[in-house]
Amino acid sequence: MSTITESVEVGVPVTDAYNQWTQFETFPRFMEGVEQVRQLDDTHMHWVTKVGGVTREFDATIVEQIPDQCVSWRSDAGPDHSGKVTFDKVDARTTRVTAKMNIDPEGFVENVADKLGVLDRRVKGDLKRFKEFIEERGGRETGAWRGSVESTTEQSTAQGPSTRAGKPGAGIRPGEPGVSGLVPDDPDSGGLSPKTDPRPPL
């Protein structure tokens, strides 16, 4: 198992950077080698990756999530890896995003001599592309999940509304604890937007 740590400063407020990262199904748009991420429920995902011509599928569990602070996960089976992404406010318009990955290189890179070096460059590139992705949108995240996941020794418990990619607005009630000011948009769309946000729905 090897540990890789990389950081990038993103020119958006911490809430926008964090909100975008909670939309796991958008990961293939900026993560190299990630073919698909499917959100199964608030704490479980199914990944499809392709590295060195080899396709792998595995499930992962969100083990801790604190709004505007961090997201942590671990694989359930398949390639052995876990990670934690933290979000630190630099100023009102800048956020430092730090990814700390614990990865088994043998499980992710096939037939490459410098496996750790390849993964290190990949994580660095993913953060750079995330920066470009959110900044090019002017900080307008594609969605948000403002609930929390509290880590325990046995399992993680999700608290808050189910608003991740693929199931926007499920279970939302205005004023519900953990909603953090999110209210339904057009009832037909099932979307969400902050109550004070004048921007049109995406």
Rank of each mutant, 00 (worst) to 15 (best):
V85I: 14
L40C: 05
D68A: 09
Q69E: 11
S72H: 13
Q36R: 15
G78R: 07
S82T: 12
S75E: 09
V51D: 04
V63G: 04
F24W: 14
K84T: 14
Q65R: 14
D42A: 03
V63A: 06
F30M: 04
I66N: 11
K84G: 01
T61L: 03
G52F: 09
M45N: 02
M31Q: 15
G52E: 10
D91W: 09
A77T: 13
C70Q: 12
R29P: 06
F30E: 11
V14T: 13
D91K: 14
T86N: 01
D88Y: 08
K50H: 10
A77Y: 08
Q39D: 13
R56F: 06
T61F: 01
H46A: 04
H81T: 13
V71E: 08
Q20F: 05
A77K: 11
Y18N: 01
E35A: 04
T22D: 07
N19F: 02
E32R: 15
K50C: 03
H81K: 07
T61Y: 03
Q39T: 15
W21Y: 15
E64A: 05
K89H: 13
N19W: 06
A17E: 02
T55W: 07
S82Q: 12
V63W: 05
W21C: 00
D42M: 04
F58W: 14
R74E: 12
K50I: 10
D76I: 08
W21I: 09
Y18H: 06
I62D: 08
V54F: 10
D16A: 04
D59H: 05
V85Y: 04
R29F: 08
H44F: 01
W47C: 01
A60D: 12
F30R: 02
Q39V: 15
Q23K: 15
I66T: 15
D76S: 10
R56K: 15
V48G: 00
G78S: 02
W73L: 06
D68T: 12
V14K: 00
A17I: 09
P67W: 02
C70F: 06
F87A: 00
G33D: 06
D91C: 06
F58D: 05
P28D: 10
D16Y: 05
V63T: 15
M31N: 11
V34R: 11
H81G: 00
M31E: 08
Q36I: 10
D80M: 10
Q69K: 15
W21F: 14
D80W: 07
D88A: 15
E25Y: 07
S72E: 14
A17C: 01
R56G: 03
D16T: 13
Q39S: 12
G52L: 10
V54H: 11
R74S: 14
C70R: 14
Q20V: 08
W47M: 03
T86Y: 03
Q39C: 12
V90C: 10
F30K: 03
